Simulated assay, not measured.
Amino acid sequence: MSHVLSRIVETFPLSLSDTGDSVEQRIKSLEHRRASLTQELSALEALVKTLSRGSLKYQSAKERIVQIQNELRVLKGRLGLVKKNQNLGDFLIQIFKERLTNAEWDGVVAEARRRCDLQGRVSP
């Protein structure tokens, strides 16, 4: 069972920088995979109703249903992470990073860290 989940995690990395894909592309990919799994799950559930409980086909179909349900749970989490990280701040960072030189970006990051450190010391 854990090998199925690890295969899913490898298929859908968390970080956008790992794949180079845009957020919209990742969302579209995850939603497409979810739709295909949902369709397969529906077909398998209908098939299970027609099979006798003790048969090998019945057991195989039930095992695949459990695998699909687990994969759908992971995809739901991934989709939530991708959508959650898609906010104005992410886009601002991306725009500034593209428009600034490396030295300018390093200066902005240093200033942001300085402000963060100051805020951390002030607040309880």
Rank of each mutant, 00 (worst) to 15 (best):
T101D: 08
T11W: 10
N70A: 11
D18H: 13
V66Y: 04
R121I: 09
T101F: 07
H3C: 01
V23P: 00
A103V: 05
M1E: 06
L79H: 08
M1D: 04
K28C: 04
Q67M: 09
E104D: 14
S15P: 00
L118V: 07
G80L: 06
P13E: 09
L88N: 03
E98Q: 10
P13R: 10
D106N: 15
D18C: 07
L100C: 05
R7V: 00
V122M: 12
A46T: 01
N102Y: 13
N70M: 14
G120H: 14
G20H: 06
G107C: 12
A43I: 00
E31L: 04
V4N: 06
I95M: 10
Q25S: 12
E10L: 10
R34A: 03
V109F: 02
N70L: 13
Q69K: 15
G89C: 01
G89Y: 02
N85P: 00
E98A: 15
G107D: 13
D18Y: 14
W105Y: 07
L100A: 08
T50G: 02
R33S: 08
R33N: 04
Q94H: 08
K97F: 05
E40Y: 01
E98K: 14
L47K: 12
L118P: 00
E71H: 02
E71W: 01
R34L: 02
R78Q: 13
